[in-house]
Design a binder for these strands. Structure first.
Lengths: 338, 338
DNA sequence: AAGAGATATGCAATCGATTGCAAAGATAAA
DNA sequence: TTTATCTTTGCAATCGATTGCATATCTCTT
């Protein structure tokens, strides 16, 4: 009734449990003959290793923890998909949690993953997160951590980002090239580096041009659909003079476009729009939204590879890299001056 | 340097390890005084329980496994999101894998999750899956399994589905009500029950109407973007007479719409379209796509609740329910006869 | 005051696999 | 043949927490 253990096999074959264990793990100490015999018998007896016992003994779980703000978000689910793919081929399980951009939850999740002894952690921090003790929990004890997208300067670890600065720069430059004179940036919260960078890219592009950088042309929001609508409404009703908007994400671009269309303002004829992230809807909406493509899937793959390398090579890593994936400007109809 | 264990606490406080263990687990045998003392000391000593040891001893991992065809798909990531939310509040971790609709991978994943002793399994099977030994692995050993969306008749388990039949019926009925006379159904592979059901709903609606059910008006594809384009192209070039299409998913609806628009056929003026699933893009595309809404997030929640109930109540379950979540027809522009 | 019951704690086995060290057996070299 | 070396296997401790059973202490009741 109960599961067969290595001891059962040992008894049956008149070997010791150690031999069984070694044979099953392809330890070269064991001769080929016995190894084969043991493996065959194990199969016959329906033996399945007790991972929990092994984990307990070896202090490895072969599990990597992932924390994202929201699973149900195209960019993040793409990253997760990439992580899973790599982890799977390397024999790691992936445990996923979402912080909902809520610091308390993020904190609790981190502690839980820590208590569950994940071998490593891949994460993108939440919008509210400003302290990092819950991450230091890992890094202090040499448990590998890899950040992606929403990274943290305060902690030494490998980091995977897209070049948000470049993205912001390209997007803005493109608008300038299209002849825009009054460009507004609706950006994200500045405690997140990615939004800082996008904004800096915006500023740089403006400064390099003949245009004036105007403080009132930068608005920071939380980049939700609702906020986007509110923001553009305020701008329009406030009589702000503008002929182009670089939005911090596609969601905002979308709500802006919808608002403008409803109010008889034409995109791109009257106002040019560029978003960020290349959400699936951006391609198929009318007008299709120009945007900056972020390679979510391959970011996930890279993050997983880096993490698993660290897990396997125990040597302390001293130089942590920040891998910057290139961004790609996708020009669609929302920004084409006709 | 090494972690504090209950034995360390025991030694320091002159208690036995059992007492420490019980106190920490709020076992009522322990007096309030000692419990408090122990908890306080544990905290002071920086004690953190070794989950792996506990798991090993109790044979519970507090982990639930999830297998979906593709993480990076809005419906599935919504379900995962719902699962995670419930699991989190109940103290379960969620391990996620994707089969990529590949049977071999699904099979391997199932075995891995099984070896990792997940406490329960939630899954939606892949398109290629026609045998179920890898799932019986669980159900045979009384490990709770909950299916969602792409369910399996052969296995007794709780199942969460949307009423695909009703969805297909509503969608088709709607097209008929809009005056369509020649309705085509581009459906999914029939080894998946959901596509069978949608198709049956389609047939029922046609049969109940004054229209003729025409074999050649039902086409089964794998519902990808590319297949959708191919299929509509063949139909149009083949001179098929049609004024409405019920597509098995929104992706197909989208590719059909794009093809038609490119070829000067107007949606909805010439051909009415209804999709299925309410993908995020469906609302924002032009014309916006009428569709059947599937409550992914709450399906995930329900699945997780059912599973966790089974995990916690050891009593054998004899009557497995199939919970059918209602569908909702969302009428948008792609099917509005003007 | 004495036995019954309630309360609080300890003992020790156990879960199953891993691994350092010892040892037995086999082979080769001298 | 003997010694040295290599190969192969076993012993036994260990990982940290849990839990059935035994025991000790205390509180009541009569």
């Amino acid at each position: 009734m109960s599961e067969t253990t290595i001891h059962d096999i040992a008894k049956k074959l008149n070997f010791s449990a150690s031999t069984i264990s070694r044979a099953l793990n392809d330890n070269p100490l064991i001769s080929d003959g016995t190894r084969n015999l043991i493996k065959k018998t194990a199969k016959e007896m329906g033996y399945r290793p007790n991972t929990m016992a092994a984990n307990f003994r070896t202090k490895k779980t072969n599990t990597i923890g992932v924390i994202v703000p929201l699973i149900n978000r195209h960019f993040f689910s793409s990253v997760i998909s990439g992580i899973e793919e790599v982890a799977y081929t390397q024999g790691f399980a992936v445990t996923i949690s979402q912080s909902n951009d809520n610091f308390e939850k993020e904190d609790k999740i981190a502690h839980t993953l820590f208590a569950n002894r994940v071998d490593g952690l891949i994460l993108s921090i939440g919008m509210e997160t400003t302290t990092f003790d819950h991450i230091k929990l890992f890094s202090d004890r040499k448990i590998p951590v890899v950040f992606f997208d929403r990274i943290v300067d305060e902690i030494k670890a490998h980091k995977i980002v897209v070049n948000d600065f470049e993205g912001g720069y390209k997007a803005t430059k493109h608008l300038i090239d299209q002849g825009a004179k009054n460009i507004v940036h609706i950006g994200g919260p500045l405690n997140l580096k990615i939004y800082q960078d996008r904004q800096e890219g915006f500023c740089r592009a403006i400064n390099e041009s003949s245009l004036e950088l105007d403080e009132s042309s930068i608005i920071n929001t939380n980049l939700t659909r609702a906020e986007g609508t509110k923001t553009i409404e305020k701008l329009i009703k406030g009589g702000k003079k503008l002929d182009a908007i670089f939005c911090g994400n596609d969601t905002t671009a979308l709500s802006v476009i919808i608002y403008l269309q409803k109010n008889g303002i034409k995109v791109p004829d009257d106002i040019l729009i560029v978003g960020f992230s290349n959400e699936p809807f951006s391609e198929v909406v009318t007008p299709s939204i120009s945007t900056i493509k972020q390679p979510g899937f391959s970011m996930g793959q890279t993050a997983a590879r880096l993490l698993i390398n660290q897990i396997n090579n125990k040597q302390k890593i001293t130089d942590f890299k920040t891998i910057t994936m290139p961004t790609e400007l996708i020009i669609r109809n929302s920004s084409k001056r006709t």
